[in-house]
Design a protein around this nucleic acid. Structure first.
Lengths: 252, 252
DNA sequence: ACCTGAACACCGTTCAAGT
DNA sequence: ACCTGAACACCGTTCAAGT
């Protein structure tokens, strides 16, 4: 039974630190393979060979391949959480902050398409049942954290009087609306569907338009009719995600 | 090289008919296994055993497991297309028709969760590249057809004056907005995310609210402020999808 | 010309043996 | 107590042999 070492800790013994480091090494390696060779290229043999330990040792840390995938997903969601955090702490209107969340999500999907696929994989299907309860709890906590950030922005906006309170289901409906639209457009973007061939716009571009349409419909002020959403996007990208923009624009 | 026999045809020889029937038998069987045993329960061995032919014969029809999955997906998208068709032909306002599309999507996801997962699987990842060009074309054509229905409703509404024309990106943006929101909320619904535990509403329920919010934002008349969206849902379910509602409410 | 199923390659998982 | 890697089970795919 492998120890749960999701978080580093001051009080760890040398042995525990070693185990923790190796767990990170395994995840590092697995993620690298995933990025270079895709989902099907990620095999336990390859991971073991790369870290120069045996397969048995890998299984001492992760009791199945799914747990490794889940571990990678958790890392990615942590990274995404960090981006969301920047959005929440942005020194602007609440509407600008929630817009920044959308940008963060879209940027992340474009920068890390393979990981994004994986996060989707782990969320669905029987995969979630295959992982241990501890790892499931870890997943849940990160999901709570990331949802919490968005909820917090919406609640703050309500308290600030930016959103009329006489609407049913808010703030949940707003969070879920943005979430599903962002999630769906990301997946459509990554799908092989040839939107150009279908004579259509790109999903991610339309998500930007549509999320503002949705916020307008909730009367979240300032309404997008009073400002330029593209100027806002440029400003937020420059202020909050300069590094990410550079990565996105640099040739791979 | 197996023949492409997606569609039945009057002029087929007896031999061709036999091949076509067997292809259908394989898909029937595979879909049944998929529903009973899940994605991982669907193996080529099991399919071969069930149809009482050898694995080699299965491979004469489908050159990989992915092609079988793709075949199942095509069937499902055909079924969904039929539901969408009912929505388009509904004798009501255009706004009611587009709402019916949303209901169709949601109903289908609830009635056939496993198939829905599969459609998502085939859309993404490297899976699409693993199938033959012919099958890829088949997929594309169905996607075009199903997108076409939604586009048609939106265009008709515009021509009818239900939607102000002075908005950028329409009708594409509306189609993609509804599509990504519907797609995203379906996937969130099927994901293992415990929304109740997170203290949130259900994604599918919020999708109904939010898609009307989105349509309102595009000023698609009649606005949802002038009618009861829940009464509309009941009416549409009763008029268009009575059988599906019965299935949904009957104990499994 | 079509079908068969043994054989192969690959990969996740286990566990007896080694240190 | 921890690590190892041979062995096992399973599954997608191929193809020589059979009819």
């Amino acid at each position: 039974m492998p120890m749960i070492l999701s978080k580093a800790n001051e009080n760890m013994t040398r042995k525990q630190r070693e185990l923790f480091d190796r767990e990170q090494l395994i995840l590092d390696t697995a993620q690298q393979i995933l990025n270079q060779q895709g989902t099907q290229g990620l095999t336990m043999d390859r991971v073991a060979a790369e870290i120069e330990y045996s397969k048995g040792t890998v299984y001492n840390h992760f009791s199945s391949k799914e747990e490794i995938i889940s571990g990678i997903s958790c890392r990615c969601m942590d990274n995404l959480t960090e981006l969301f955090g920047r959005a929440r702490d942005y020194n602007g209107s609440h509407r600008e902050r929630i817009a920044a969340v959308g940008i963060a999500q879209s940027l992340y999907a474009q920068l890390h398409p393979v990981e994004m696929q994986n996060m989707q994989l782990i969320k669905s299907a029987d995969v979630r049942d295959k992982i241990s309860e501890e790892k499931q709890l870890e997943l849940l906590q990160i999901e709570q954290k990331i949802t919490g950030i968005v909820l917090e922005i919406v609640r703050d906006a309500m308290n600030n009087g930016d959103i009329p309170q006489d609407q049913p289901f808010i703030p949940d409906s707003i969070v879920l609306g943005l979430w599903s639209m962002g999630y769906g457009s990301n997946l459509l973007h990554m799908s092989g569907i040839p939107f150009k061939k279908l004579g259509m716009q790109q999903p991610l571009e339309m998500a930007w338009v549509n999320s503002h349409k949705l916020l307008d419909s909730y009367q979240w002020r300032p309404l997008s009719t009073t400002f330029d959403i593209y100027a806002l996007r440029e400003k937020l990208c420059k202020d909050l995600f300069p590094e990410e923009m550079k990565q996105l624009n640099s040739p791979k």
